[in-house]
């Protein structure tokens, strides 16, 4: 493999990897505060992209994206308030089925609003053919936008969870909900907020990736499965490990293009998921003792 091809694959892998990582962090945020996996996580990404595309026909790109993120956050909050907030200690099976139902509903609504067509936002800089030469590889400027914005998002999130009062409150809820409530934290609001946050980051990722990966009404399912693979790979609930796992999966996928037929691309990540689930269900970076204390 030439150096040029190598770096070309590497950049493709990082681009997809960081998007998977964002979806995985979305899973983790909700999992940490509620203990449920939101199967509709991929739909937030799709909604973000679709809403921004529709808004961009009326208003310029940046406000369109900002507004799309806000709208998706509101949708996320509404979903939590309408479907989840008032349930008393629901079983895991029940939550799985409800979130799967939600993902189907969102997808079908999107199908009836936007149709089956493939859409995309315009490139933030230049167009389809403009490229920058980095490390011998020809990179579209949009790739740098994706890596940059997702990287900033990850950094901001880790600052948010470590140093802000709200972030600490959310972590307290995930550590021990009862104790957090006794300390005067409104745990229910934290859950709503976690849905808003993960909807927001999903939507922003959906917007920046839209020019290169395109947005279609059913693109959420594939992303959700890859995001979940990454979340499990890094250890469920561990957001920073998800970034490493995401990059790993993205790079594996990118380099496997030469070996595995394109039609089986999805099968690779799912096989990785199955193997990880069977061999190390607490993730590559997780530790056995903490995993045993969690409920799946």
């Amino acid at each position: 493999m030439t150096a040029e091809l190598f770096s070309q694959y590497l950049f493709a892998g990082i681009t997809y990897g960081i998007i998977y990582a964002i979806v995985a962090i979305g899973f983790n945020i909700i999992y940490n505060t509620t203990g449920i996996i939101n199967f509709a996580q991929g739909e937030f990404v799709m909604l973000g992209g679709m809403i921004a595309i529709s808004l961009n026909t009326i208003i310029p790109l940046v406000p369109a994206i900002a507004l799309a993120v806000v709208i998706t956050m509101i949708i996320g909050a509404l979903i939590e308030i309408i479907f989840i907030r008032w349930l008393d200690n629901p079983s895991v099976l029940r939550m799985i089925i409800i979130t799967i139902g939600l993902s189907i509903l969102i997808r079908e609504v999107a199908l009836h609003i936007w149709g089956e067509g493939v859409r995309s936002l315009p490139y933030f800089n230049g167009n389809e053919i403009s490229s920058i030469k980095i490390l011998e590889a020809q990179i579209s400027p949009q790739v740098l936008w994706v890596i940059g914005i997702c990287g900033i998002m990850v950094t901001l999130l880790s600052i948010f969870f470590r140093f802000t009062s709200l972030g600490l409150d959310m972590r307290a809820c995930s550590a021990n909900r009862l104790a957090a409530t006794l300390c005067g934290i409104n745990a229910r609001n934290m859950v709503t907020f976690s849905f808003m946050l993960s909807a927001g980051i999903g939507a922003l990722a959906g917007c920046v990736m839209s020019p290169i990966t395109y947005t279609q009404y059913d693109c959420g399912t594939g992303l959700a499965i890859k995001g979940f693979t990454v979340a499990v790979l890094g250890g469920l609930g561990n957001s920073m490990a998800a970034v490493a796992a995401g990059l790993l999966l993205g790079i594996i996928e990118a380099f496997s293009i030469g070996v595995v037929p394109l039609a089986f691309q999805d099968a690779i990540s799912i096989s990785i998921l199955l193997i990880i689930l069977f061999v190390r269900p607490n993730g590559l970076f997780g530790c056995n003792e903490t995993a045993n204390l969690k409920e799946f």
């Binding site: 449920i36 996996i37 895991v92 099976l93 799985i96 499965i225 979940f228 499990v232 999805d266 099968a267 799912i270 096989s271 998921l273 199955l274 689930l277 069977f278 269900p281 409920e295 799946f296």
Partner: peptide, 17 residues
Amino acid sequence: KLKGHYLAMATLGFGII
């Protein structure tokens, strides 16, 4: 051997494969 979310995702993964 899996439970809950993991079982759901693993069987879903099998279906997709």
